[in-house]
């Protein structure tokens, strides 16, 4: 299609600006209100610290906090990667035959019904006191919705396309690779968006139980020593980490699979 005429383009820019400006403005107002209420009512910092206190206390320890943030990011990304690597073949297997689905599904549901917080200390005993149990907990928290959405995508292919593949006498493998998996891309991405958010949760759970670094570890230790503003700082960093990683997934989809965006809106 031809490029959009100028006025429409301008209007689109204005709308984009509003889309960003409005939530940012709301956030700033929220922070200011928070600060004012803390000061006006003299809320003690060990209950709810003011934003300014969170800022200064976290900044004072900028170096160590950065190390903690990097440690958590690493756990999140490793766990996320593990869930992607495991979920893809698992979803393919589940959709391949009802027998496999009937065998694997109950096991999957079992892994989901176990409380991960309860499992974490046991994993530490099995896997040792290192990064591995944290990554495994992250993976266990994140992978399930990903398996479900990939499986849903693989089975959502219009029957006509499968018939077209069969009419071309394409092998099952080629049908999977050239029709089913590409068709599942929008579904895979909605699963990845859920998985990346859950990965942050999983990493923190892992760090609560066993870690010598990481933002989850920082929250546990700083609250133990009544450095509550620092714990809040870690909390803010965790949410920022979650938002940034989520947006990274969105950008990857927009750059590499622009065609999937439209259909994605229908799948969420």
């Amino acid at each position: 299609m031809a490029a959009a005429p100028e006025p429409i383009k301008k209007r689109r820019h204005a709308r984009l600006a509003a889309d960003i400006a409005q939530p940012v403005a709301a956030l700033i107002i929220f922070v200011i209100l928070w600060e004012l209420i803390c000061r006006a009512f003299h809320v003690p910092a060990y209950l709810v610290p003011a934003p300014s206190a969170i800022w200064t206390d976290t900044l004072k320890l900028a170096g160590p906090v950065a190390v903690h943030t990097l440690a958590t990011t690493q756990t999140v990304l490793l766990g996320f990667l593990a869930s992607l690597i495991v979920s893809l073949p698992l979803a393919v297997l589940i959709t391949a035959s009802p027998t496999i689905a009937n065998t694997v599904y109950p096991l999957l549901v079992l892994t989901q019904s176990i409380p991960k917080v309860a499992l974490a200390p046991i994993l530490v005993v099995i896997l040792g006191s290192n990064e591995l149990p944290r990554v495994v907990v992250t993976f266990l928290v994140a992978f399930f919705p990903l398996v479900l959405s990939i499986a849903a995508g693989i089975t959502a292919v219009p029957p006509e396309l499968i018939e077209l593949g069969r009419a071309c006498r394409a092998s099952k493998w080629r049908e999977l690779w050239r029709i089913r998996l590409p068709y599942a891309v929008p579904f895979i991405f909605s699963g990845l968006k859920a998985a990346i958010t859950l990965s942050v949760v999983g990493a923190v759970v892992g760090e609560f139980v066993n870690a010598d670094r990481g933002l989850g570890y920082l929250i546990v230790t700083s609250t133990a020593f009544f450095q509550v503003p620092l714990a809040w700082g870690a909390l803010v960093l965790l949410s920022l980490l979650g938002i940034i990683l989520f947006q990274a997934v969105v950008i990857v989809e927009q750059v590499f699979f622009p065609w999937a965006i439209d259909s994605d809106k229908q799948t969420i």
Partner: peptide, 13 residues
């Protein structure tokens, strides 16, 4: 043989 279906079912990608 070639087949045309009711829905075009083109590949969106």
């Amino acid at each position: 043989t070639g087949i045309v279906f009711q829905a075009p079912t083109l590949l969106p990608w």
